[in-house]
Simulated assay, not measured.
Amino acid sequence: MAINFIKNGCSAQHPCATLLEDIAILVRRIPQVNWNHILREANSVADILVKKGQNLPHGLHVFYASSPDTTHTLSLDAFGSLKLKGCN
Rank of each mutant, 00 (worst) to 15 (best):
M1T: 14
M1Q: 04
A2C: 03
I3E: 04
I3D: 00
N4P: 01
N4E: 00
N4H: 06
N4T: 01
K7C: 11
K7W: 07
N8M: 00
N8Y: 02
G9Y: 01
C10W: 02
C10E: 01
A12D: 14
A12H: 08
Q13M: 10
Q13E: 15
H14C: 09
P15D: 13
A17Y: 15
T18R: 09
E21L: 13
I23K: 12
I23F: 14
I23P: 03
I25D: 15
I25W: 09
L26Q: 15
L26G: 07
V27C: 06
V27T: 04
R28N: 15
R29V: 01
I30Q: 04
I30G: 09
I30M: 08
I30N: 08
P31M: 05
Q32I: 11
Q32N: 14
V33P: 02
N34M: 08
W35L: 15
N36D: 07
N36M: 11
I38H: 03
L39T: 05
R40Q: 04
E41I: 10
E41C: 04
A42D: 13
S44T: 06
V45S: 04
V45M: 01
V45P: 02
A46G: 12
D47K: 10
I48M: 09
L49G: 01
V50F: 05
V50T: 12
V50N: 05
K51P: 00
K51A: 13
K51Y: 06
N55M: 05
G59E: 10
L60H: 13
L60G: 02
H61P: 03
V62M: 15
V62G: 05
V62Q: 15
A65H: 05
A65Q: 08
P68N: 02
D69E: 15
T70R: 03
T70N: 01
T71Y: 07
T71G: 04
T71D: 12
H72E: 13
T73P: 00
T73M: 10
L74A: 12
S75Y: 01
A78M: 14
G80Y: 02
G80M: 07
G80R: 00
S81K: 06
S81V: 13
L84M: 13
L84A: 06
K85H: 10
G86M: 08
N88F: 09
N88D: 12
N88P: 02
